[in-house]
Design a protein around this nucleic acid. Structure first.
Lengths: 234, 234
DNA sequence: CGAATGCTTGACGGTACTCAAAGATTGTGG
DNA sequence: CCACAATCTTTGAGTACCGTCAAGCATTCG
């Protein structure tokens, strides 16, 4: 079960009870289906419990940018709480299970359990840091550097929540996802990915990613993930 | 005074008193000087009270990416609260005045004044939305589109906090700032900026920016800022 | 087995980068 | 107040990285 992973902080029973109470239900979303529609504010907030998803925005002519990927433990929909209308969308990559919370009770939660409010802020700040990194990537790294950084980032994050087995992780993304995350064209994404794998830095097959030369990838991407602190889980 | 601007929500006296109490002092930073150093966690949090600043990250070879610009009312340093070490830097563009808060009292604030904790989350979420937009820009917009979006964004934000006079705003950035914000080279930034101004979309002189054709810039940048809700001010 | 989706590769062109150097502006000290 | 340095802006020339177009191949699914 997710909560027992060492990636998350232990919560005292009372706060666990508050979370249970706050919870409205479980939702399952199929691969490729929307979790939150772009440009509209959902009635619910979610915690991702299993599967992969991503946040994205599109320009009016259809160009899409993936803002960040979502893994188990991530909190979804907080930004919309304060939205002026222009919101991101969220889409499931694999099949996904979510815990749903009523948005209108968020303030309640802050008021009655400030610890949980603080934790939510924690999660929001952590997500912003990931977007920060992605912005540096899109703005200042070249194609190979972007790819190296993305592969290491996804691998480390999945590993952290116990999704790595035998040195490889499930990798359910197609090259369009990668292209949209890195701000590259599909064709150039393919060529870059092939180049790195031909250099023996990684292997991507049967929907799984294996990092062959982590140091080379970290160096190329100038991206060294520090061991992360345990994350709160709402 | 900043708080009386219509851009900010009115706070009840009790919460104002809490903020006053939470405050440690005022800090003044000269143009071009650091407010927070990259890679180290400051002991204080700040609210920007006057002037312009920006958040940035650099790669190890010196390439810099500006993450977002900071205006009066913005809260500084929250992300570091939850940092694993890799933090952004913050630098003053103009001379700047800041209200300083002790970081170790942040949790206190959440616990004793949940409303203010909620407001801080509000500000964090708003900032993340700005970074989201900047990521779309760096990832999916071409040079002219980026420039159009940036000019409109900065103008609207400054206007909102009462910094626009006679249809123009103070514009203290040099072209290197713009280049680093947009993920472009200095030379290409210059050429793009000149092109837009030759097309009659804006005027940039004497350190002031005047938007001549807002609709054209919004359309070019595919960026239409909605009227913003009043922002909490900590 | 055919359609749909996704991956791969080659050819070509353009946007944006680098290099270089000349103006313009600002600041500083004699 | 001027001379000179430092910083910033502007422009041109050449190049390269990455995007677009096109087509073939592989895999999955109904």
């Amino acid at each position: 079960m997710l909560r027992s992973s060492t990636a998350f902080v232990l919560l005292p029973p009372e706060e666990l009870r508050t979370i249970e109470d706050f919870r409205e239900g479980v939702r399952v979303v199929d691969p490729g289906r929307p979790i939150l529609e772009e440009h509209q504010r959902g009635r619910q907030l979610f915690t991702l419990y299993s599967g992969w998803a991503f946040r994205y925005k599109t320009l009016s002519d259809g160009r899409r940018q993936i803002l960040n990927f979502l893994l188990p433990g991530d909190f979804i929909g907080l930004q919309d709480e304060f939205a002026d209308g222009q919101t991101h969308g969220v889409e499931a990559v694999t099949g996904v299970t979510l815990c749903a919370f009523a948005r209108e009770r968020l303030w309640d939660l802050f008021a009655t359990q400030p610890r949980l409010g603080y934790d939510i802020t924690w999660l929001a700040a952590r997500e912003e840091k990931m977007v920060d990194d992605n912005l540096v990537t899109a703005g200042r790294r070249n194609a190979s550097e972007r790819m190296a950084m993305l592969l290491m980032h996804l691998y480390r994050r999945a590993q952290r929540v116990g999704m790595a087995h035998d040195g490889s992780i499930e990798f359910p993304f197609n090259q369009q996802h990668i292209a949209d995350a890195l701000g590259l064209s599909l064709v150039h994404t393919n060529k870059t990915l092939r180049r790195l794998s031909r250099l023996g830095l990684h292997v991507l097959e049967n929907g799984r990613l294996r990092i062959v030369d982590p140091l080379a990838l970290e160096t190329l991407g100038d991206y060294f993930e520090r061991p992360m602190l345990p994350t709160p889980l709402i």
